[in-house]
Design a protein around this nucleic acid. Sequence first.
DNA 1: TTTACTTCTTAACATAGATCAAGTGTCGAA
DNA 2: TTCGACACTTGATCTATGTTAAGAAGTAAA
Lengths: 196, 196
Amino acid sequence: MTETQKTEDNKLLYYFKKWTVITPEDESVILSAFEPCSIKKKKDLLLSGKTCKYVYFITRGCLRSFYIDSKGTEHIYQIRMDNSWISDLESFFTQTPSKYNIEALEDTQMLRISFSRLEQLYEEVPKLERYFRILFQKAYINALKRLNANMWETAMDRYNDMLKENPMMFKRVPLIYIASYLGITPESLSRIRKRI
Amino acid sequence: MTETQKTEDNKLLYYFKKWTVITPEDESVILSAFEPCSIKKKKDLLLSGKTCKYVYFITRGCLRSFYIDSKGTEHIYQIRMDNSWISDLESFFTQTPSKYNIEALEDTQMLRISFSRLEQLYEEVPKLERYFRILFQKAYINALKRLNANMWETAMDRYNDMLKENPMMFKRVPLIYIASYLGITPESLSRIRKRI
DNA sequence: TTTACTTCTTAACATAGATCAAGTGTCGAA
DNA sequence: TTCGACACTTGATCTATGTTAAGAAGTAAA
């Protein structure tokens, strides 16, 4: 195991330990369940129509997930960077074909785990149920907040909120993707930025 | 314990058992942790500014949660009926004041559990972590779907989807609330219905 | 049985953001 | 060093939905 890899693993464990108690024995079981992988910028991690085989913990890099509508337009619903999870959870948990794509916006390093390996890991380390319970709790609360913002706030308010809460994204992600994530066109985002 | 009450409890357990294994001993521990309660139509279960003390499992009835914006307009983000959960999870899990209101749209019966009692219950019946992990997983997936629909589909498509997926709601909930839930005004909903 | 309130509809007008079209600047690959 | 794709901007026009205002129908209260 290289030095780089060790650092990556430790970050994964750091996040587990924030919400649940992990013994040294658990640690090695967890680490052995995850498999390092990487992807080059502009390459696809998941293609629409394929089943999503893994959940990925991003140790370094940036990815977007999006779907393509009947007119061929891409709609981004997630942009994820270092130390967060990415997957198509619906496809992953039901093991059915995905409607979404996941693409790398930067060269990205990840730790991945398959559906069956994760099920097995829950049996080996039941405490992980708590970690993921809390993770999904928070993800759900955030998704509802974003839903409310999209339904009832102006595009300008959403842009300002995002600037405040996710300043790093503006340094690493092109505005055309941020526009789609905010639910508007690049033209509208451009006009909003001019007004400020 | 009345006959009515027993039926209610069994429904709660039925949903737990769908996703995890519950022994007879666990059953009684779970049942004793939940407390029956009820609320009359138009009364408030939660007021903005107050901390949300419970999560509620609705055994029979209907509630809406909404927030009031700076102009005094109500915005509904959840409508929940029989056999589902309702709460302001953010306020509940952080035990801080809520930004939302929850109001009964019908006379409603529930089973409730407090934050500290739920924490204790997780220790007593660790298998419940799995149930709630899966519950939040599904809730998160649904919230993302609703977000995508609100960002990228027309109000008419959203209305038709809701008609298909939640026909019961149209029989029990006034259209003014359904409009708000769909992210549009009652006037727009009226126009959409006329077009069909 | 009158009154008042809630729900729902309709119409005229207003507006945020989309669409279409064109143009500039930048950067990586040949 | 030049070319072509990509990122971003700007302007003109269009459209879905909001806003304002009014009225009808149903229901609960007095």
